[in-house]
Amino acid sequence: MFERLHIEYAKKGWRASNRRDEFPQMTRWVIRQETVHAFERFLRWVTKEKAPERASKGKKPIAAGLSVPQSLAQKGFQSIKLPNAPTAPSKGLHVVAHQHNIPSFPEHLAEYLSRIEKKKARTPQLYKAAKDLPFARIDVYHSFRLELEGLNDDDGEQDWVKASPLDGGRYDTVVVLDGDEADMVSLNGTRIGRVHLIFTLPRTMRIGSNDMPLPVYWPNACPLAYITWYTKPSQNAAAKASHNMVSVSKEMFQGAPRWSIIPLSNIRQSCMLVPDFKKTNSRIWDTDKCVLDTCTHFYINNWLSLYSY
């Protein structure tokens, strides 16, 4: 805890200074950060207060299995680096869906953008199907790198996340920030997801015979990830006393995996899932296929990294 405070209130302030007469600059930096956080809390309070008012105007609730546009805010303890060029530039939506084994991706993308339109646009443009989208191609990446700030005075950790269909496919599991209490360590305020696709939207869309820029409220400059969810981490007394690992299982909705499209900045790190073989028949997992595809219940190996312990 105290090392965390040292990073927040000393190291970051010193890095923001010009290294000359640094203490007044560090103090001013901390005051400004606290002012920003106070204003963010005020905005959350205002949003919460107005939520019942918006609900009373007849807005339909969001179905439990659908994607919700999430915050694009990036935590200060992480940095994300994509390759300089897309691995598969300008790839057709249906080709991507076939190669990455996510057949409903075009429809889910249309639904995701429709929800952004409902939330942000004065005159929402809704897309009932993939054919209604004003573009047909996206840029696809097969990996990205995460750099986490060191817990002490070291250089931190570098972490790669892959979502590649090559060589039989590799789709990594990750820890996703899911609440305001989420921090750089532990699993509090997080959920586990599996990354099936890393992509960015095109810069322009086709309207009639003209190329037009995308709406400014769309995540144009933000790399996105298509993920499927696991249940929230839980732990019983027996597990805590023996191996101290928390358990998750695949989360389903109406017979299909629950999905979301999220900004890459919501991903904190990769993680390792260990199958709970007691809850899965050996004939299911003892195959040549990936256990992430065949098993349904897992433990999170929180011994793999200091950031997930």
Score class of each variant (00 low, 15 high):
A129F: 07
L214M: 15
F135G: 01
R122Q: 12
P165W: 09
A136S: 15
I138L: 02
A182R: 04
A136E: 11
G189H: 02
E147D: 10
T173H: 03
A129S: 15
Y171T: 03
D211C: 09
L177V: 15
D178R: 08
A182W: 07
Q158K: 15
R203M: 09
R145L: 13
D211W: 12
A130R: 01
F135T: 03
R145W: 09
D132P: 01
L146R: 10
A163F: 08
E181N: 12
E181Y: 05
R194Q: 14
D178P: 02
L214H: 06
E157R: 10
Q125K: 15
G189Y: 01
V140S: 01
Y127I: 08
L201M: 05
N210D: 15
P165A: 07
V195C: 12
G150A: 11
V140F: 02
G168C: 10
S164P: 07
G168W: 09
G150H: 01
V161G: 04
S209P: 00
V175W: 01
G208C: 08
H196V: 00
L146G: 00
I138G: 00
T200N: 06
D167C: 11
Y171Q: 01
E149T: 11
F199R: 03
V161P: 02
D167R: 12
L133D: 06
G193M: 04
I198L: 15
D153G: 15
I198A: 05
R145V: 12
R203K: 13
A163H: 09
V185G: 00
Y127G: 04
A163D: 08
G156A: 10
K128W: 03
L177G: 02
T190R: 07
L151T: 12
D155I: 14
S164L: 08
A130Y: 02
P134W: 02
K131M: 05
R145C: 06
D180Y: 08
A136W: 03
L126N: 05
A182P: 03
P202W: 02
A130M: 03
Y127L: 13
T190H: 13
L151E: 12
D132M: 07
Y141H: 11
D159E: 11
I198K: 05
A130G: 04
V176P: 00
I207T: 12
M212R: 14
I192L: 10
S164R: 11
V161F: 06
V175C: 09
D139Y: 02
L187F: 02
L197Q: 02
D132H: 11
D159Q: 11
G169R: 06
G150S: 08
S209T: 14
G156L: 07
D155C: 14
